[in-house]
Design a protein around this nucleic acid. Structure first.
Lengths: 125, 125
DNA sequence: CCGCATCCCCAAGGATACTG
DNA sequence: CAGTATCCTTGGGGATGCGG
C-alpha cells in the first residue's frame, strides 16, 4: 500500500505538464476524428483526385460521407477543391501544403498498422 | 479536359497499391478511434496510473467512458490492469510494451497539434 | 476508491433515390 | 460525374445513482 501511495504522489506532481501535452493532441483529434478523414488524405497522397476516384479508393465510404468529410477538410485547409468548367463538370481535390504536413502522422499510423496486422495474424495462428 | 483525363488515368493505375496502403491505417484507426484512447495512452506515458489519476489528467472524460475505454485498450493489449488487494482496492493501469509502440504515432500527432495551434492563433489575429 | 447499471440524447454514419 | 435530400439506425457519450 505504501508503494501505491508513492506512485500516486509522484504522478500527481507531474499532472499539470501532462495536461499541457494533451491539448495539442486533442486539437489534432478534433480535426482528424472519424473513420474517414485520414484515409481520404491518404488517397490524395499521390496527387489530385476526382470525387469518384477517391470514393473508389476509400473502400466503403458513401457519397454523402465523402462529400461532408471533404468539406470539413477544405474548411481546415487540408484539401483544396478545384472545379473545371467542363460538361459534365469535373472536380479535383488536392492536398494543400498544410495537408501534406500530416504526412508523418499518417506514415507513423501506417507503420504501426502494418506491424499490428502482422501481430494479429501471428496470434490467431 | 485533356488534362483531367490524364490525371484520372494516371491515378486509376496506382489505385490497387493505394488501397493496400490504406488497410493498415484502417486497422489502426479501428483500435484507436474515439475521442479518448490516445489521450488515455498519453496519460500513461510517465508510468503506472490509478483510475482517478487518469480521469484527472484526461480532462472531461466521465468514469463510464474511462472504464469502457480502458477495457478496450486492455483487450487490445495496449494497457495492463493490475488490482492491489488493499482496502479499498487500488487499481493501477500501465502501458504495455505494445502500448509503448504507439509512442511515435502519439509524438507525431502531438507535434502536428502544436504547430496547428500556433497556426490557428496566427490566423485569428 | 473503482467502477457498473440505467436512462437518455445527439451526432456519425448508412441506404436509397434524386438533380444539374 | 458530382453531388443533395431524405429517412433511418447505431453507438458514442453524458448524467446520475448505486454497490463492493
Amino acid at each position: 500500500m505504501a508503494i501505491i501511495g508513492e506512485i500516486t504522489e509522484k504522478h500527481r506532481l507531474s499532472s499539470p505538464e501532462c495536461k499541457q501535452q494533451m491539448m495539442p493532441v486533442q486539437d489534432a483529434l478534433d480535426i482528424l476524428h472519424g473513420k474517414w478523414k485520414l484515409l481520404i488524405l491518404m488517397s490524395l497522397s499521390t496527387g489530385p483526385m476526382r470525387f469518384k476516384e477517391i470514393q473508389r479508393q476509400v473502400e466503403g465510404i458513401t457519397a454523402k460521407m465523402l462529400s461532408k468529410e471533404l468539406k470539413d477538410l477544405e474548411i481546415n485547409e487540408l484539401v483544396q477543391r478545384t472545379v473545371y468548367d467542363t460538361i459534365p463538370v469535373a472536380v479535383e481535390y488536392t492536398r494543400t501544403p498544410y495537408g501534406n504536413s500530416l504526412k508523418k502522422v499518417i506514415d507513423e499510423l501506417h507503420a504501426w498498422g502494418v506491424q499490428h496486422r502482422k501481430r494479429v495474424m501471428r496470434r490467431s495462428n
